[in-house]
């Protein structure tokens, strides 16, 4: 019996390890290419990190840097040159600005709405809620084009507003918070009213603290989605590099260096991908919970 269990366990691990290798393959390729020199990449040699020989990089010299600056180890060169070629910190900053503003405005809008829908009695509440439910069905990508036309008419293409505005009203956020607020006992709110609190301060001082877990899940959902979003920025940002979000930066990098050098390109890609992955690995329980909670409604 014991032996049989071991065999069962090992073939399961076998399958899972093969799966894991397949899943990790592009990550391996990405990191490896960001560390190796162009010759090593082209001859597919050097394993994960390459030989790391000090050498002079011709593309770098051609760009106009002195020979001294251009003579270094491949991994240093790749990352240094990536940052030299494109304003990567700027792209990351844009990513942070956009995702954070989206999230904050989403919360500012969703919390009062959800509170009203869950706890206040007003004429047409059922109708409004059914509207929210209907809006949940509309695919975000589907209305991208009309949204784009509206923004173009308003002259907002190529601005931060174009990146942020369409996402500020999260129907999904309203729905999620409403479901959560339904579970908060009415007595709590009545007590707050007795104490003389206004409806708005009830939302921020009473409801908000109880909603932290749901809010955290929603935060993860929102930030991940908008940090990684490529479609929308690609539509509304046409040429202004100062507004590029990280995915747009990657795209530009790929177009720019394509034929010359792959190392710095991969270095920039790694830099952009790393923040979320590190955050995920540190707080993976929360991430997976957050994504499943928001997923399962």
């Amino acid at each position: 019996m014991q032996a049989k269990q071991y065999i069962g366990e090992s073939w399961k691990h076998g399958i899972l390890i093969i799966g894991a290798i397949l899943v990790l393959l592009p990550f391996y390729m990405m990191v490896s290419m960001s560390l190796k020199s162009q010759q090593e990449i082209q001859s597919i040699s050097g394993g994960l990190i390459g030989a790391q020989e000090v050498q002079t990089f011709p593309v770098c010299v051609k760009t106009g840097y002195s020979e001294e600056t251009c003579t270094t180890k491949p991994y240093i060169y790749n990352y240094w040159f990536a940052f030299e070629k494109a304003p990567i910190p700027r792209y990351l900053m844009n990513g942070v600005i956009v995702t954070l503003s989206i999230f904050i405005i989403q919360v500012l809008v969703a919390l009062p709405c959800a509170y009203a829908l869950a706890k206040l009695r007003f004429y047409g509440r059922e109708f409004v809620f059914s509207m929210v439910l209907f809006c949940l069905l509309i695919p975000v990508h589907g209305i991208a084009l009309p949204l784009y036309v509206m923004l173009a008419q308003a002259g907002l293409v190529d601005t931060y507003s174009a990146l942020i505005l369409p996402w500020t009203i999260s129907v999904f956020g309203i729905f999620l918070m409403r479901q959560f607020f339904m579970t908060v006992p009415d007595e709590l709110i009545d007590a707050a009213r007795m104490d003389g609190m206004g409806e708005y301060s009830i939302v921020w001082k009473v409801m908000l603290p109880t909603a932290i877990p749901a809010l955290l899940a929603f935060a993860i959902f929102s930030v991940v989605a908008h940090w990684n979003d490529y479609f929308w920025p690609r539509m509304v940002i046409t040429g202004n590099r100062d507004l590029f979000t990280p995915p747009l930066g990657i795209r530009e990098f790929r177009g720019g260096i394509d034929s010359d050098e792959f190392g710095p390109m991969m270095a920039s890609i790694v830099t952009v991908t790393v923040p979320l992955i590190v955050a995920f690995i540190i707080a993976q329980k929360r991430f997976i919970e957050g994504i499943t909670l928001t997923g399962m409604k």
């Binding site: 990280p246 952009v272 991908t273 979320l276």
Partner: peptide, 8 residues
Amino acid sequence: VMATLLAM
């Protein structure tokens, strides 16, 4: 699921 799809 977490990684930027474009980069991947």
